[in-house]
Structures are given as structure tokens and as C-alpha cells.
Design a protein around this nucleic acid. Structure first.
Lengths: 229, 229
DNA sequence: GGTTTCCCCTAACGATGTTAGGGGCGCCGA
DNA sequence: TCGGCGCCCCTAACATCGTTAGGGGAAACC
């Protein structure tokens, strides 16, 4: 997938300048990719299918892009750019963090394929993504976090949004799979008594779990601040 | 990748019974897959390469396995089975949770490819994985969590382990990429002042971030327990 | 007007997941 | 003891994928 011998990701390469507006553009390619991903999922994203949407053949894409991975990286970053992180207008840092993460999460749920991608072995360093990270971390700095505590808080919140969106997307399974899973869990209820009793796989209040989990985490963070700051 | 028309994952199908010990076994296939994944990473896992390791040709694998995804699902579950969740011998539930998650995390870091996989659109329902979930959730039930709070706590902790392992694996990048990323961040330090100042991408104390983040989360959970229980 | 640069095309390569079907070999009933 | 049957691995091949090589036309530049 990744081009051998060139470890630089899309973001670290100079952008091609173009005069006029040719029929094929990086922007148009990325838009088409997002649309294709939304409608058919990541495993249906193919250079040929993407090209077809643009009334073009696959190799033509390679003038604008080096790799299929580049397309995916650009598509992921595009969805982070849908709702630019709002300025921290909230009174309390807690509300600011909640606002940032809620917008963030909404974008991920609108494009379920995006949550799984940053976990793929390559680092995420697109400008729109970095802007979200900047907003999150700036809020935490303003709240009084520093050093290792800041780092831990940032990553904990990051993992909570990304993780819950990705878990939710992955567990949005068909009713039949859910029924089969439930059946097996009940059958093995001697092995998994707690899961069988409390309904692992059957919870569907994802928003509630996200919000409540976030409250837990923010409670812990606030306690930490009260201790040191 | 996934066989069309058959939505059932490996775990929901009857296991083939065999008398004697043929040269090719589900167990041997999974062992070889884990070894291959450990040594060469997930994008080098190929049915042909896997077969080669077993002194066999690719189509032979399909007698024991329906799909490459099956192999991956089995491999992931195998690493969750390396260290079966210990019985809750700790005095406080907090220590039990920490113990479970630390073992869990260690297995994920030993096999960095495994952290990214559960995020791939398919649900994780292997027996060893379920056993870990069972241990985690049972501990929380014993601590006093119920209903939506239990669900939220389970998923929050789950996302913390999986997310931090996957983030750490993804950001273990080459020194050159790190240097290039740092250079760009500094260059755009007007866009990302906080990230540039506090060193996003350069943090390498992953264990510390995991532990501290977990403390935050556990603090929040304990506060919740004190409120209702 | 000639040359260069941009940008899309056709053709093709190597690799991949998977299927179709052949055949050897051991186990079972007669 | 022998014929059949099912297990299990094989060869051959297909469709599809990411990607490269190189051609050619049109627009921009001197």
C-alpha cells in the first residue's frame, strides 16, 4: 500500500500549484472519496471506483496523488474540517472540552469509516485534525494542566472520543448477528455470567455511554486540578 | 474480503471435529499467523505467505478457514488468551481493574497489530476476548456499578486500553517522520501554538500517560460510586 | 511558431483473495 | 480382504486490486 522508500506522508510534501481549474483536482478527488466512503464503506473504496465517479480512469488519479493511502488520509482530514473547532467561548473549561468533543464525535458518527482509520498504523497529522487537537489541548492548558498531566489528559480524552466512535461503528451490526451473538452468550452463560446478565453487545445507548463516560473522566480531571492547581 | 451472503463470523459457526492430528490444524494456522503478524506486520499477512510458513499452498488453508478475516479474528483472539484474566484477588476493585487492564495492555503492546484490528468494522466476539470483558465487567459489578453507569464505565475503560495501545502503536514512527512532523509543527506554530509548545507527537512516555489517564478515570468512577453507592 | 509543461489516456505487471475441481490416502462396513 | 467414502491437500485459474510505463494532445510560454 505505502510506497516503499518514501516515508513522508501527504502532509509533509509540497502541494502542487495549478493555474486554471482542470477537471481533476485534489479537492474534487477528496470530495468524491468522502462520498464514496459514506455511501459504500471503506472496503469498497477502490482507485478504479473512485476514478469512475470522477469520469476518469484510475491511473489519472496518480498525477494528483501518490498513493491510495494518501486519498484516505486526505478524506479523514476532510471530515475533521467539516466543523472547525469553535473558539473557547464557554465559561468553564469543562463545557469547552465537552463542546469540542461533541462536535468531534458528531463528525465521526456521520462518517463511520473515519473512526477506524487513525488506528491504522500511520500517524494522523492532517491540518484539520491538528486543529481539533490544538483546540482540545489549548482548553486543557487554559484549565491549568501542564507537563505529564496535560499529556495524559489529552490522550485520555482523545482515546475516549475516537474509541467510543469506533466501538459504536464496529458494533452497529445486523440484527441477525446480534441475535446469534446473544444466543451464544446465553449458551455460554456459565463462562460469561456477567456479560450475559448485563447484555454486552445489546446496549444501544451509545450516546448515553459516551456522555456518562466523559463525565467520569472529567470528574477525575477536575479532582486532579483541585489537588494541584 | 468478507464472504458475501454469509454474515456469520468464525465464532458463530460449528467447529470442525477431527480425529488424529493432520499436519494442518486451525491451531497451527493461528500460531503461524500470530508469528507472521508479529514479525512482519499486518500488511504483510497474506494467505500465500501464511501458507508458505506452514509448508503448504494458499488454497489448502481454505479447508480450515473460510476467509482471511477469519484468520485475523482468530489471531486477535489468540493474543487475548495469552494471559487469562486473573481471579479478582485484589482487595480493592480499583486494584483489580488496574490489574486486568495492565495485563490486557501488555498483550496488546506485545502484538502491536492487534490493537488496530478490533476497530475494523467487524465486532470482536472471540472467547478469549469475551473472557477479558467478563473479568472487567464482573469487577465493576462487584464494585457496585449497575445499569447505564455500568455500561458507561465498561466502555470507558475498554476504550482507554484499546485506544491508548492503538495510539501508541500508530505513533511509534521513525525518527525521520518525527523530525519532519516536528519541523512542520514549528513552522505552523502560529496555527498550533499549544501543540508546538507542548510537543504533540514527541511524547514518548506512553506508559505514564496510560497510567495517569487511568487514574483520572478511576477517580471519576470512584466519585460516582461514592455518590450513589 | 516551436518548445515546454501539464494532465489525462491506454496498456500492462505483479500480487492478492478466493473458487473449481482433481486425487491420494486412511477409515469403515461387508 | 476389499470397495467405497470422506477427509485433506494439491494444481490451475479467475477477478480484482494498487501501481507503473509511456504516449499524446492541448494550453502556456518565449
Amino acid at each position: 500500500m505505502s510506497r516503499a522508500g518514501d516515508v513522508r506522508s501527504v502532509w509533509l510534501r509540497p502541494r502542487r500549484t495549478s493555474r486554471g481549474e482542470p477537471p481533476l483536482t485534489l479537492t474534487r478527488i477528496v470530495e468524491a472519496a468522502v462520498a464514496l466512503l459514506d455511501e459504500e464503506g471503506i472496503e469498497r473504496l477502490t482507485m478504479r471506483r473512485l476514478a469512475e465517479r470522477l469520469a476518469v480512469v484510475a491511473p489519472s488519479l496518480y498525477w494528483h496523488v501518490d498513493t491510495k493511502d494518501d486519498v484516505i488520509d486526505l478524506a479523514v482530514d476532510a471530515i475533521f474540517g467539516e466543523a472547525p473547532p469553535g473558539a473557547g467561548t464557554a465559561a468553564h473549561w469543562r463545557e469547552s472540552v465537552t463542546a469540542v468533543l461533541t462536535t468531534w464525535r458528531a463528525a465521526l458518527l456521520r462518517h463511520p469509516w473515519a473512526a477506524a482509520v487513525p488506528a491504522r498504523q500511520r500517524p494522523t497529522i492532517g491540518p484539520n485534525f491538528l486543529a481539533q487537537m490544538e483546540a482540545l489541548q489549548a482548553t486543557l492548558v487554559a484549565a491549568g494542566f501542564t507537563g505529564k498531566g496535560l499529556s495524559a489528559a489529552t490522550w485520555a480524552l482523545y482515546n475516549h472520543v475516537m474509541g467510543s466512535a469506533s466501538t459504536e461503528s464496529a458494533l452497529r451490526i445486523t440484527d441477525e448477528e446480534r441475535r446469534l451473538g446473544q444466543a451464544q452468550l446465553k449458551a455460554d452463560s456459565d463462562c460469561y455470567p456477567t456479560l450475559a446478565a448485563h447484555g454486552y453487545l445489546y446496549d444501544d445507548d451509545w450516546d448515553g455511554s459516551f456522555t456518562t463516560g466523559l463525565e467520569y473522566l472529567l470528574d477525575g480531571l477536575e479532582a486532579q486540578l483541585g489537588r494541584t492547581g
